[in-house]
C-alpha cells in the first residue's frame, strides 16, 4: 500500500530499526507492536496511513498490521487529547478506591471514559490491570508513565502538572 504523504521522523525510524534488529532477519513482523507504539508516540495516534506505513516498512500486509493495532488496547485508532489518562478500575484498584478517583476525574474534567475534553487537553480512558495492584489506584499518562496511590487530591495535582 503506498502512502506517499505519510512519513515518520528519522529518529522514529532509527528506533524501529533498533527493534527490528532484535529478531531474526526474516521475522521483521515481530517488531510491528513496537513500530506501531513508536509511530503512535510520534503522531499522537495511529491513523490508517500510519498503520499502512508501518506495515509497508516491515513488509507485512496492511490488514495484518491493522489486526494488531486493533487487538491491543493501548493503541489509539482515533485522535486523543494531549494527555491521555488511563485509569485502572479493575477489582484490586477498585477495592483500594479507584471508584472515587474515577468519579473525581470525570467530574473535574467534565467528560466520561472514552471522551476528550473540548480543549483537546485530556482524554480519559478506563484501563485494565496494569500489574502494580499493590500501589493502586493506578493510572497511566500517555501509555508510558505510571502514577500510583491515586486519591482525588493526588489526581488534582497530577492534572495541574499536565499541560
Amino acid at each position: 500500500m503506498q502512502t506517499p504523504e505519510f512519513q515518520l521522523s528519522a529518529e522514529a525510524l532509527a528506533q524501529i530499526d533498533q527493534e527490528v534488529a532484535k529478531y531474526p532477519a526474516e521475522q521483521k513482523q515481530s517488531a510491528v507492536m513496537s513500530a506501531l507504539r513508536i509511530a503512535q508516540a510520534e503522531k499522537g495516534w495511529l491513523s490508517k496511513d500510519a498503520i499502512a506505513y508501518v506495515a509497508d516498512y516491515l513488509g507485512m500486509p496492511a490488514i495484518a498490521a491493522y489486526e494488531v493495532a486493533t487487538f491491543y488496547n493501548m493503541y489509539d485508532l482515533e485522535p486523543v487529547g494531549r494527555n491521555k489518562i488511563t485509569l485502572c478500575t479493575n477489582l484490586p484498584c477498585q477495592l483500594q478506591g479507584a471508584d472515587k478517583v474515577a468519579e473525581h476525574l470525570q467530574a473535574r474534567l467534565g467528560i466520561g471514559f472514552g471522551e476528550t475534553t473540548p480543549d483537546g487537553r485530556y482524554t480519559l480512558k478506563e484501563g485494565e490491570c496494569m500489574g502494580a495492584c499493590g500501589h493502586g489506584p493506578l493510572c497511566l499518562h500517555n501509555n508510558h508513565k505510571m502514577h500510583a496511590h491515586l486519591t482525588p487530591d493526588a489526581v488534582d495535582k497530577l492534572l495541574d502538572d499536565l499541560k
Binding site: Y23, Q29, A31, M33, V68, N73, C129
Partner: peptide, 25 residues
Amino acid sequence: HAHHGYGAYICGEETALLESLEGKK
C-alpha cells in the same frame, strides 16, 4: 531482548505470547 506488549491480558497465556512475539494478534 525485551519485547514490549501493548495491552492484552491474553498474552500472558504462553502461546498467545508467542503469537504476539511474532507480531500478530
